[in-house]
Nucleic acid binder design. Structure first.
Lengths: 196, 196
DNA sequence: TTGCACATACCAACTAGTATGTATACCTTT
DNA sequence: AAAGGTATACATACTAGTTGGTATGTGCAA
């Protein structure tokens, strides 16, 4: 077991605990007991609880969310199909647990944005990225005649992200995978409106 | 100062504190210090912290959210106009603080649904209500030829709520009232699609 | 004189964080 | 290659400050 492994194991479990309990509900003691390590190990890698949360955002959440949206820059194909494909995949792959625990990004956004400016800014980077890359893809679509020329690309991209997060949230209270599927479907219908 | 007043003063401040800090971040000590009362008063009215949270949902959040949607049952006028009017009002009246602190309902949904089944069920009642009354209004619209006959009213109502919550969430991280306005506008455009 | 509406004082359990010890790998010097 | 020093990667034990909750007392109105 080398150092990198331990750090990543810690981060992984912290992510899971935050996903379920929120950052304020995160209990470092619970996680380290679960991992079979001690406080010495934890505080060797992270100076504080806040640092753990920020590391989870930067090293786990941000990469996993932005991977797809960044890939839009080089992706070939109709931007609306690409975006719809991604949403469809989210919908298809969502497990009951994914729905019950909600979107990790959205959870942290709702909880931490008003409480900690460092958190908010890190989360904003992710959200901005998702919207930005989607909007750029749509803009290229406009330029290529694939997307209606009067489309407000940023507004559509932003609403797509909002609809997605909202779909997670509603499904979470209702504890209903079907609700998620239905709402994503409505979002897909919405996106279709902008095809040229 | 009679008893009812004290109870409601407590509940009101608890709501504010929860709105900002979340339920897990709620500190009873902070609130009672703020109100100038003591633990004796607090625990005279509420047996536990959970009871406070549930009372806030049942007595403050639920009535304030469902008031409009219940009113749809007797409301005259085009259902799409009624729904759009409500969203437009939310958009117009939203203060920077409303956006920064987010939607109280959505905040609690994200935080508490996986943690406490009592909370989830109380919150689900509110969310179900919003969707249910909206869907019924749309169905009456279908019957009266105001709404397209092939409309999946529940799906549209559900997505409207999701879009609304999503709009709050995105605006919250971005700390942008404009983002909220834009996303609500997109939601209004979406609703317009179903006018007969 | 009984019950309601609080106030006061207190506590047990937790929780992030620290101070300190130690085994081991690695690197340098002789 | 052996010796010796040093940084890394943890483990152990402890603490200070919270935090929800309780036990008990008290003024007052009906």
């Amino acid at each position: 077991m080398n150092a990198t492994d331990t750090r990543e194991r810690i981060l992984g479990r912290m992510f899971q605990d935050i996903h379920k309990n929120g950052f304020q509900g995160l209990r470092a003691d619970r996680v380290i007991a679960d991992l079979g390590i001690t406080k010495g190990a934890l505080y060797h890698y992270f100076p504080s609880k806040d640092a753990i949360g920020l590391a989870v955002i930067a090293e786990i959440i941000e990469p996993s969310y932005l991977a797809f949206f960044r890939s839009l820059e080089q992706a070939k194909g109709h931007p609306i199909d690409l975006l719809k494909g991604h949403l469809q995949e989210l919908s298809d792959k969502a497990s009951p647990d994914d729905i019950y625990l909600g979107c990790p990004l959205n959870n942290l956004v709702q909880e931490m944005s008003p409480l900690n400016e460092d958190f908010r800014q890190r989360l904003k980077v992710v959200m901005d990225g998702m919207i930005h890359y989607s909007a750029r893809a749509l803009e290229r679509g406009v330029a290529q005649g694939q997307v209606k020329s009067d489309t407000d690309c940023t507004a559509v991209a932003s609403f797509m992200v909002a609809g997605m997060e909202g779909a997670y949230g509603v499904a979470k209270v209702l504890k209903s995978l079907n609700s998620f599927h239905r709402n994503i479907q409505q979002l897909l219908n919405y996106l279709e409106l902008f095809r040229a």
